[in-house]
């Protein structure tokens, strides 16, 4: 049976803000709703710049619809070298 949840992956500093590298959350209609929920849950994310990928595809064009089982990645820039 397909999961009813969304899987969220945190990279770099976003993983420090959330305190985990991966979590499951109830499905929400769009990336905008998810972003709002995550910022409420993890206020430190508000201080961070990140882009989103849905199912390994970076999404740059406004709100992206979500479905149960989707995997969303938070991708902050890295600058170290």
């Amino acid at each position: 049976m397909k999961t009813q949840k969304l899987k969220i992956l945190f990279f770099g500093m976003t993983a420090e803000a959330s305190g985990c590298r991966e979590l499951q959350t109830d499905c929400l209609p769009t990336t905008g709703d998810l972003q709002k929920t995550l910022l409420e849950k993890f206020p430190l994310l508000k201080t961070q710049n990140f882009t989103l990928a849905v199912n390994e595809q970076v999404v740059n064009h406004g709100l992206h619809p979500l479905e149960a089982g989707d995997e969303i990645a938070l991708l902050p820039p890295f600058s170290g070298g």
Partner: peptide
């Protein structure tokens, strides 16, 4: 874009747009 994590050698390959 390849993400690599040394701790467990996990990788994610993301398509950019």
């Amino acid at each position: 874009l390849l993400y690599y994590n040394l701790k467990d050698h996990s990788t994610r390959l993301l398509k950019l747009s």
